[in-house]
Amino acid sequence: MARPAARRRANLEEQNLRRMQMLAKVFPIKLKDGNQAAAEAIVQEFGPKGPGTEEGTLSFRVYRDPAKPDYLLFVEHFADQAAYDAHTGSSAYKELIAGRFADLIVEFVEIDHELLVSL
């Protein structure tokens, strides 16, 4: 029988391994001038309808930079590529992000990241 400390350590190692295997996406997004409020409203509507209902979406965070108008930074974590594909294939994504939100952007970059350290 494993001792409690050894069991906790094994659970932490398993959790860290799962985190390291997840897919991390980062999207810096330049918005068309004057569209910050409209873009934020769409993202706030999208959160509970899309990522908030998706089993494989582990986290969905959108940041604004108070010193940089008309800019958002999306940071998203998915269980795997299939979860990301389901996310971008959802009806909420198609309507709100690929639809209304896409009309408000100048440019975005999709950056994949691999987890190095997680505490």
Score class of each variant (00 low, 15 high):
Lys32Asp: 01
Arg61Asp: 15
Lys49Ala: 10
Tyr63Pro: 01
Phe108Asn: 03
Leu116Trp: 13
Ala86Gln: 11
Glu95Trp: 00
Ala79Gly: 04
Gln44Lys: 12
Val43Asp: 03
Phe27Val: 15
Thr57Tyr: 08
Gln36Cys: 03
Ile29Phe: 00
Tyr71Trp: 12
Gly99Ser: 08
Pro69Trp: 14
Ala38His: 05
Gln36Trp: 00
Glu40Tyr: 03
Glu54Ala: 07
Val75Asp: 08
Ala39Asp: 03
Ala83Thr: 03
Lys49Arg: 13
Lys32Gln: 08
Ser90Val: 08
Phe27Trp: 10
Ala41Phe: 01
Arg61Glu: 15
Glu107Arg: 05
Lys32Tyr: 00
Glu54Phe: 03
Phe46Trp: 06
Ala92Pro: 04
Lys94Cys: 01
Phe46Ile: 07
Gly56Leu: 12
Tyr71Gln: 02
Pro69Met: 11
Glu107Pro: 00
Glu45Pro: 04
Glu107Ala: 14
Glu55Val: 03
Tyr84Val: 07
Gln44Glu: 15
Phe46Ala: 14
Ile111Ser: 07
Ala38Tyr: 04
Gly56Lys: 15
Leu115Arg: 10
Leu73Cys: 05
Lys68Gln: 15
Asp80Tyr: 06
Asp103Gln: 09
Pro66Leu: 14
Phe46Gln: 01
Val43Leu: 15
Thr53Asn: 10
Ser118Glu: 13
Pro28Gly: 04
Val43Ala: 13
Ser59Pro: 05
Asp80Ser: 13
Asp33Trp: 05
Lys68Val: 11
Ala24Ser: 12
Gly89Gln: 09
Lys25Asp: 05
Ile42His: 03
Lys49Pro: 01
Lys25Ala: 10
Glu45Gln: 13
Val109Gln: 11
Leu58Pro: 00
Lys49Cys: 02
Leu104Asp: 01
Phe60Ile: 08
Ser118Cys: 08
Ala38Asn: 05
Lys25Trp: 05
Glu54Ser: 06
Ile42Trp: 07
Leu31Ile: 02
Leu73Asn: 05
Pro69Lys: 11
Pro51Gln: 07
Arg64Gln: 14
Ser59Ala: 11
Lys25Phe: 05
Ile97Leu: 14
Pro69Gly: 08
Gly47His: 04
Ala86Val: 12
Tyr71Leu: 00
Val106Phe: 00
Tyr63Phe: 15
Thr53Arg: 13
Asp33Pro: 01
Pro66Ser: 11
Ser91Glu: 15
